[in-house]
Computed example of a mutant assay.
Amino acid sequence: MKSNILIGLTVLVVFIAVAQSLTCKQCSVGIFGTCLFPGNMVCDNSTLNCYTGEAQFNATGFLKLHTRGCLDSNLCGKTITASILGAGVTSSFSCCQTDLCNGASSVQVSVTVALSAALLAWGI
């Protein structure tokens, strides 16, 4: 009898842990507002934040790389400056805590709409 209660409690704890896992949009590399390999990912229980990250090469100023996924709380809201092969890079991270909250931003939608409108205007 005690063993059945123990098994039941163990199964309940596993279901609660799975239900509490956060699902985030995943993008390993994005450029010009487009993710090259989009998807979703389930965060492990140690990463309780979805994030949207941006890395800008300081020398070019205009080229920005984007990334999305799960992130530890200690990097949320931070801006980090580093050097990669002698080039300065500034990275920033924005976090949120609900399922798929790090999805496409309105800026990316606006760029898509603007590009579509331009193509239609040119008659392509």
Rank of each mutant, 00 (worst) to 15 (best):
C27P: 06
S116D: 09
L100V: 09
C35K: 04
F37G: 01
I31V: 04
C35M: 05
S46D: 09
A87V: 02
S46N: 10
L12I: 13
N58D: 05
N102Q: 02
K64P: 02
L115G: 00
S92V: 06
A118N: 06
T23I: 11
Q26K: 10
T10M: 05
Q97G: 12
L36T: 08
T52I: 14
F57W: 06
D44N: 13
G30I: 08
F15L: 13
S116H: 11
A117S: 08
A17N: 13
S83F: 09
I16H: 05
A114T: 00
Y51E: 07
A82Y: 01
V14R: 12
L71M: 05
C43Y: 04
T81V: 13
S110P: 03
V113H: 14
F62A: 12
L63V: 15
A104R: 07
L75A: 04
G69P: 10
Q20N: 10
G103P: 14
G103R: 09
T90D: 00
S92K: 00
Q97F: 03
T60D: 06
C27S: 11
N49W: 03
S116P: 11
C70I: 06
C35R: 10
C35E: 06
S73A: 05
W122S: 03
C101S: 08
V109Q: 12
G53I: 06
A114G: 08
G30F: 11
T98F: 07
A121T: 14
V42N: 06
M41D: 02
L100I: 00
N102T: 05
S106P: 04
G77N: 14
H66D: 14
L12D: 06
K25D: 06
C96H: 00
T52E: 09
T10S: 15
G103E: 14
K25G: 11
K78C: 01
V11D: 02
H66W: 10
Y51V: 12
A114E: 03
G61M: 10
L85W: 09
L85F: 09
G69A: 02
E54F: 10
L120Q: 05
K25Y: 15
N40L: 15
I7Y: 08
L65G: 11
L36F: 09
G61E: 09
I7R: 01
T52L: 09
S21Y: 15
Q97D: 04
C27E: 08
G53E: 02
